[in-house]
Amino acid sequence: MSRAALLVLADGRFPAGGHAHSGGAEAAVKAGRITGTASLEEYCRGRLHTAGLVAAAFAAAAVLGAEVRELDSAADARTPSAALRGAARRLGRQLLRAARVAWPTAELDALAREFPKGAHQPVVLGVVARAAGLSAQDAAYCAAYECVSGPATAVVRLLSLDPFEATGVLARLTTEVDRVADRAVEAAREVVAGAGVDALPAASAPLMEIGAEWHAGWAVRLFAS
């Protein structure tokens, strides 16, 4: 078991389907809400403290051994957009596929059997992190970072944004990613200390949810979500 496994798991090139998802950025770009570096940064910041916090807490709770089916059901309740629930399950399934080759364990095989159509990605991420020997905090970092790196990469393609600027956005958000990961782990500890899945954050972002439904109805789009 090695801490460097975190680098493997958090690598943007980890083959788990993330490249085809924009984290809602494609809809926000088309709606004119993301037009450049500044609005990308505010988008990522809002996403980090809502969907990012929730994803990080779910991933951390899964590492700490919270019951996967309960987590998955609680993730459903925190994802009102049917399009986003679908995307989260597809990404969960894709992540599990890659992880079962990278860190083959009986627990991952069992998860694939239990959720043939995929569990929510952050839940899978937590179980995978545990299989890779990583901590709850590692998983929370991975989930929180992924939720901002996805849109940043997508906006480089969507707006031909200078990739250095997009990377600058991610660099400026790092201290907030730290805070989100800490809060997520705190919530996850409460879950396993007996408070149950209700203790998990449920921070929502109305425009991301609405935008996801809008995006899912387009006939022509570059990204899957």
Binding site: A202, L207, M208
Partner: peptide
């Protein structure tokens, strides 16, 4: 007995960053 919706929203001064930005309320 099963949660079908669980949503939190925090806004206004002192709320965490981005609440009025393009992802949340714009």
């Amino acid at each position: 007995g099963r949660a079908v919706l669980d949503q939190e929203l925090a806004c206004g001064p002192g709320a965490l960053g981005g609440w009025d930005g393009p992802a949340v309320l714009a």
